[in-house]
């Protein structure tokens, strides 16, 4: 069993110098980054990439449009869900437009972190749900990626265990590339315990390189971009 100092000083000796006491000067990174010309371009590139990954996505301007979109996507399925009271699991707090739309449609939301006392109970809640609903902290236009931070009011399993995942994101939270998101994350200081970057549904090509969707994570992914 090696202690830290021993381990580190071995590396220093292999490098032929004492371990620096100050952080080395960061290297200059010089890569061309994608920049969109307008906010509208950014949103449409985000949605194009999201669609290319197999996700469904829509920009909404009002609560009415949100309801319309939800009905279109989930209305028929919802009628067939056996346990409607427990079918949709969500974060404690969703963007206002989302809260309004679900309330107006009278589709009950199970609040993941409040409903159950222990983690295993929460997991069962999420595992038996048909749809998980979350917000998102950023979106990346260049890759069609949602970036979702964990917090006590949220829960990582909501976007993971149900077969369908729906995320709401304000258009103002879309960024051009990962670099910009990482800059903002850095400026937050201590990162949350999990930052999940989600680019489309769960997928695998492990059997004869044949693409298959929905092996462990969500099979279908939806995003509603709120034009704020």
């Amino acid at each position: 069993m090696t202690n830290t100092n021993e381990f580190i000083s071995l590396l220093a000796s292999k490098l032929g110098r004492p371990t620096p006491t100050q952080a080395p000067e960061p290297v200059a990174i010089n890569v061309p980054q994608y920049r969109s010309s307008t906010r509208k371009d950014r949103a449409s590139l985000f949605l194009d990439n999201w669609h290319a990954l197999g996700g469904k996505g829509m920009i909404v301007k009002s609560p009415e449009e949100t309801m319309q979109c939800l009905k279109e996507w989930f209305g028929d399925q919802q009628a067939t869900w056996p346990n409607k009271q427990q079918a949709i699991v969500a974060w404690d707090m969703l963007p206002t437009v989302a809260e309004f739309a679900f309330a107006a449609l009278e589709w009950p939301l199970v609040r993941y972190s409040q409903e159950a006392q222990s983690s295993p109970d929460r997991y069962s809640l999420a595992a038996q749900a048909e749809l998980g609903v979350t917000g998102a902290d950023w979106g990346i236009a260049l890759s069609g990626t949602l970036v979702v931070n964990s917090s006590p009011q949220r829960g990582r399993a909501v976007s993971l265990l149900p077969p369908l995942h729906l995320a709401f994101i304000e258009a103002s939270k879309l960024r051009d590339n990962l670099f910009d998101v990482l800059e903002e994350l850095t400026s937050l200081g201590m990162p949350p315990s999990a930052i999940e970057m989600i680019s489309g549904p769960s997928r695998t090509s492990d059997i004869e390189m044949d693409l298959s969707i929905g092996v462990h994570g969500p099979i279908e992914v939806y995003v509603i971009v709120i034009d704020d």
């Binding site: 990626t145 964990s150 315990s193 999940e196 970057m197 680019s199």
Partner: peptide, 15 residues
Amino acid sequence: QKFSSYTTILTPPKQ
């Protein structure tokens, strides 16, 4: 891929 379906940045343990 542009990014893999899931890129997870963990700073464990959980809060």
